[in-house]
Design a binder for these strands. Structure first.
Length: 1100
RNA sequence: GGGCUUAUAGCUCAGCUGGUUAGAGCGCUACACUGAUAAUGUAGAGGUCCGAGGUUCGAGUCCCCGUAAGCCCA
């Protein structure tokens, strides 16, 4: 059987062929089945949403998932990977709304919820086929046949189970958050609705800078500015910035003319006090003066103000301490206002958050049912407790004519009241952008709305600690982005008021006094039966009951006291869906308990860094709170894929890359390799197709060339690895070297992949293939493959190269699964070395440390450096490599180095075509040495004196160097101090050999003898001839193994001698049976070699 | 506004715990090689290591303040 020889490398078609082979032979399943009973490695697939087409970044993400699953499979683990689809949520709904040309309001009116949800269900899998195709074509092995789907009843039942588990632990509660709310429409608005064009409008509002009197002072006030004066009755705290500087200013209130001391940010003084008032004297002030004097009398850091208390501004509803305290908030700026921010817990999202963090209560009143409600009702009116303004709309929701001169907004009325009470420092109209309801065009309020929460804060410390056990790649995402997020955790708002999602399984009585949380289908059925008995429902529900809206909404349950219970309207956050996948993908705990237990937590997950607070968090929170465990042990948070200029890809800019086209052009392997090798996956990737091309040419091209080289000659020699393997120790030095390098590579790649460093692994493989294997080993050993008989040496060469290629195929197979499969099969199918039908069913190569010879690697490095230096000298002297030279001289001071070079002498000699390598040591006395300070050593010993010592060392001549080399100490004087230097404090290098042509690199120096003797010249001519004959052979279209006869026209004696002296060599090299010099050669070809002309004829 | 990341040659990236000439590949220029040949070798040009300060005998590397870009959150 022969190795397949290829014309050229077609990575695209090759991948297609491999793909159909895999399918035909069911290789993916075999890669799992063949590991049955082995230790498992658990991977969780972060479910994509198939309602859009996949992009190029999905290639990156999927490659990253695939690489480690394949690697672990090679390491013997059983790696099951269940695919999944994320199907619920807002993006789906919005897309459907758009398609149907409806808005949220129309749902339940123009279209029934039932129909609408049906549309969503259809839409969400719209592009599933494209996704599946991409997954397959990039070689991402994942079980697409049995995926988990978040809208499945079983999946949702697991979600209900989990929600009930939270509920039973007392971790699921109803509270409120501050959300955009439209009193005119009587509904909350999502951020998506707020982002509709035209929602934000410039409006002129009355803004007030209010004076908050500091407790236990005569007339000291904090100044805080607001553009929503109607929230001032709800003020319960003031916020300052940590690093902002504040000052106390002595001045007068412009409305009451009373003397006041006001505190505000230093940077804002200019905005409140005119420069023209600067020179005025406090004492000269007369009540009513237009210009008011001021004087800065004290200054504070923001942190110094924290904890100070003040009197309630509008004391309608008293509150206990710590209300009316100064707190710190990160969002305070000095761009406008006073640098002190008024906080009303019930009417601002930031305010609410800061209040919760500081235990500040909100200003609230009791409603008829005894529940806490804000001081503005749902219609936008002040409640009766706000006596002065009771029943007044906080904004103009009743449609009053604002152009009427008598019209006064509530904000203005509040301003008037404050002015009168010496509580307003400034009142002015302020134009700013403010959101409006897209339905009613009326201003939006930020308003507390009911929400269901998971009390994540109760487990904050545990979640923080569990996170510390997770191996994050990169680490900073774990400690920084994710860690900080956990440190500042707030309760998880689960509620979404939408239609297409998992309904919250909680039923309540009308009076809100009784409630029930349902955790399974069985439980629901049982409760419904009770309800049917009680006459609340007509019929029981079956096993096929759909848990979606509107069906669950129609379920009315019976409370313990016999009352009707209705479902709380909320759907849950879709992130709960995906975060629950470790449980729900197995329909846990209703089925597959054992599978779940074996596959929890995950060993590895990876998604984009944008998932940090999405999937990564919800996985972590659910697992941490319910199972007291991490959900994943290792995680790669990969970066973005940008266009080649570093811009974000977007449809609008038209710089997106079609993954299918990319795969069609470059094939999956080069694409994957490029994406992983070019930059660490957690860095953003500047995607440039030219980069893939380079990978294709440089890495895959070189590897393929190496294989082709091997295949060509191995086929000629019929090498199929049938013979005994020659012990590595018995192989030539260069074989042992590349085998040593190969084993070092195996260790390195294993280590990198185990450490989730795919980029380093790729680069190591790449360097090995290109530099070590192709450019050095193969180049140096070419002759062994094509000259002479099938000797032991040749066998060793084949075996060595084969081992290198097959090992590279295995090492690189996780990243380039198609090409490496091809390479492996092409090799292994011929030799039958391993009983494997796929490289992916095999095992990761075992490194044999005994075969790693670091000193040999070092030797080879030396020979490479020396060769490179000689090449550069030849080049300088314009002596081509074909011309043999007599000798290279290498000055060596270190006998160890000398010994090492000596061992690779032969290599050097062939590589640079010289007859001998000679060493010059000290004894010859011709070497000029150079001395350099060893800063690392000197720094340790002498610290600040290093500079002076270095200067002294620079002055040293050969004599001082000699002293140190003998092992004696050298005494030098630095600033009246005597310092004894020894050999370790310096580096001694040979620099020059007078009268020779030298080149040096670091500590290596070589000299080349460039004199060409007659013998050398003759040999050069012979080599030249070989070269020309080879060209002729090629021109004649001869095969490598074809034999020829050479005839040459007679020439001058020297040339004839040159040819005859080297006849054996010439014949051997050119596969010639004879070489004759003929007196009269008529029909030869005239060859020009430098200044020579030869008439040559070749006969087959 | 906050958190995190990134910034080194025209481009893509290395640069370990600080050590004195900052590297590689691609690209460019020149030359060589010519049975791996749409390959390969050698050499050259190309750097205020984003900016300003600081620590240190010594900073691309450590600290601080900025600038720009990106992501997430407000």
């Amino acid at each position: 059987m022969k190795y397949i020889e290829y014309k050229d490398l077609d990575l695209v078609n090759m991948a297609g062929e491999i793909l159909s082979e895999w399918k035909k032979r069911d290789i993916f399943n075999k890669s799992i089945e063949s590991r049955e009973g082995n230790e498992t490695f658990t991977f969780y697939e972060g479910p994509p949403s198939a309602n859009g087409t996949p992009g190029i970044h999905h290639v990156m993400a999927r490659a990253l998932k695939d690489i480690f699953c394949r690697y672990k499979t090679l390491k013997g683990f059983q790696v099951k990977r269940k695919g999944g689809w994320d199907t619920h949520g807002l993006p789906v709904e919005i897309k459907v709304e758009k398609e149907l040309g409806i808005t949220k309001d129309d749902i339940g009116k123009k279209i029934s919820i039932e129909e609408y949800n049906q549309k969503c269900k259809e839409a969400v899998m719209k592009f599933k086929d494209e996704w599946d195709e991409l997954t397959e074509r990039i070689g991402y092995w994942v079980d697409l046949d049995n995926p988990y789907i978040t809208f499945d009843r079983d999946y949702m039942e697991s979600l209900w189970y989990l929600l009930k588990a939270f509920y039973d632990k007392g971790l699921l509660y109803k509270g409120y958050t501050i959300q955009p709310y439209s009193p005119a429409a009587g509904t909350g608005l999502s951020s998506h609705e707020l982002n509709q064009p035209g929602c934000y409008k410039m409006v002129k509002d009355t803004s007030i800078t209010a004076q908050f009197k500091i407790k236990n002072t005569e007339n000291d006030y904090f100044l805080a500015w607001t553009t929503t004066p109607w929230t001032l009755p709800a003020n319960s705290a003031l916020a300052v910035g940590k690093n902002i500087n504040y000052v106390k200013v002595r001045t007068f209130n412009p409305y009451t003319y009373e003397p006041v001391n006001v505190i505000l940010a230093e940077d804002r003084v200019g905005a409140y006090f005119g420069a023209d008032s600067k020179d005025l004297k406090i004492e000269d002030y007369q009540a009513g003066d237009k210009r008011i004097p001021y004087e800065v009398i004290e200054s504070y850091k923001g942190s110094e103000l924290v904890g100070m208390t003040y009197e309630q501004l509008l004391p309608y509803i008293p509150l206990p301490h710590p209300a009316f305290t100064v707190v710190m908030a990160d969002y305070v700026t000095t761009e406008d206002g006073t640098g002190i921010v008024h906080i009303s817990k019930t009417f601002g999202a930031d305010d609410f958050r800061v209040s919760v963090q500081n235990n500040i209560p909100g200003v609230m009143v009791k409603d008829d049912l005894g529940n806490d409600v804000p001081i503005v009702d749902k219609k936008g009116r002040f409640v009766k407790e706000i006596t002065d303004f009771a029943g007044m709309y906080v904004k103009n929701y009743e449609g009053k004519d604002e152009s009427d001169p008598a019209y006064k907004s509530t904000d203005v009325l509040i301003a008037i009241k404050l002015k009168g009470e010496n509580k307003a420092f400034r009142v002015e109209k302020y134009e700013h952008s403010y959101p409006h309801c897209w339905r009613t065009d009326k201003p939006v309020l930020y308003y507390p709305l009911d929400s269901w929460f998971i009390k994540t804060t109760a487990y904050k410390d545990r979640l923080v600690n569990l996170n510390k056990t997770i191996n994050w790649k990169p680490a900073s995402t774990g400690t920084g982005r994710f860690g900080n997020w956990l440190e500042n955790l707030v309760d998880w708002n689960l509620s979404r008021s939408r239609f297409w999602g998992t309904p919250l399984p909680i039923w309540r009585t009308k009076d809100q006094k009784e409630e029930k949380c349902i955790g399974s289908m069985e439980e629901l059925k049982a409760e419904v039966e009770k309800s049917v008995e009680a006459g609340f429902m007509d019929a029981p529900i079956g096993d096929d009951f759909d848990l979606h809206r509107p069906y669950v909404d129609n379920v009315v349950l019976k409370s313990d006291s016999g009352k009707q219970m209705f479902r709380e309207e909320a759907l849950i956050d879709v992130w709960f869906d995906s975060g629950a996948m470790p449980f729900a993908q197995w329909h846990y705990p209703f089925e597959n308990k054992d599978i779940f237990e074996k596959s929890f937590p995950a060993d590895y997950i990876t998604e984009g860094v944008d998932q940090t607070r999405g999937w990564f968090f919800t996985l972590h929170a659910i697992a941490g709170m319910l199972n007291d465990s991490v959900a994943f042990k290792n995680v790669i948070a990969n970066g973005l894929v940008l266009d080649k200029h570093g811009n974000k890809m977007s449809k609008r800019l038209g710089n997106t890359v079609d993954p299918f086209k990319t795969l069609e052009t470059f094939g999956p392997d080069a694409t994957r390799w490029y994406m992983i090798a070019n930059a660490n996956p957690w860095d953003n990737l500047k995607f440039n197709p030219e980069g893939i091309q380079e990978v294709q040419r440089r890495f895959f091209g070189t590897l393929h060339n190496t294989y082709s080289f091997f295949a060509l000659y191995a086929n000629l020699d019929q090498f199929t690895f049938e013979d005994e393997e020659i012990p590595v120790t018995k192989r030539p030095e260069s074989d042992r070297w590349i085998i040593s390098k190969l084993n070092s590579l195996v260790l390195a790649v294993d280590e990198f992949l185990a450490d989730y460093e795919p980029t380093k692994a790729c680069r190591a493989i790449q360097d090995f293939v290109i530099d070590d294997l192709s450019n050095w080993y193969v180049r140096l050993n070419r002759k062994r493959f094509w000259v002479g008989d099938y000797t032991e040496d040749k066998k060793a060469a084949y075996q060595t190269l084969y081992t290198c290629l097959v090992t590279v195929a295995k090492l690189a197979s996780p990243v380039a699964p198609f090409y490496m499969e091809r390479l492996f099969l092409d090799l292994n199918n011929t030799t039958g070395q391993e009983q494997l039908e796929s490289v992916h069913l095999g095992y990761f190569p075992e490194a044999q440390p005994a075969l790693i010879d670091k000193s040999l690697e070092k030797k080879m490095k030396l020979s490479q450096s020396i060769s490179s230096l000689v090449h550069s000298l030849r080049k300088k002297e314009k002596i081509k490599v074909r011309q043999p030279l007599a000798r290279v001289l290498i000055p060596v001071l270190d006998p160890e180095i000398k010994e090492m070079i000596h061992e690779v002498e032969d290599l050097i000699k062939t590589e640079v075509n010289v007859k001998s390598v000679e060493y010059i040591d000290d004894t010859t006395g011709v070497i000029v040495k150079k001395i350099k300070p060893n800063f690392r050593e000197l720094g340790k010993k002498y610290g600040s004196k290093v500079k002076h010592i270095a200067a002294a060392i620079k002055e040293f001549g050969q004599e001082e160097i000699g002293i140190l080399e003998k092992g004696s100490q050298l005494e030098i004087h630095i600033e009246e101090e005597t310092i004894y230097l020894d050999i370790d404090d310096v580096e001694i290098l040979s620099e020059d050999i007078p009268g020779w042509l030298v080149a040096s690199d670091g500590s290596l120096t070589v000299a080349l003898d460039v004199s060409i003797t007659e013998d050398l010249r003759k040999e050069g001519i012979a080599r030249d001839l070989v070269n020309r004959v080879q060209n002729l052979r090629k021109d004649m279209g001869l095969e490598v193994q074809d034999k020829i006869m050479i005839s040459i026209g007679k020439n001058e004696a020297m040339i004839n001698d040159a040819l005859l002296d080297n006849k054996g060599y010439i014949c051997r090299e050119t596969q010639a049976l004879s070489l004759d010099i003929k007196e009269n050669l008529s029909d030869g070809k005239l060859l020009e070699m430098d200044e020579l002309k030869l008439l040559v004829r070749i006969d087959v």
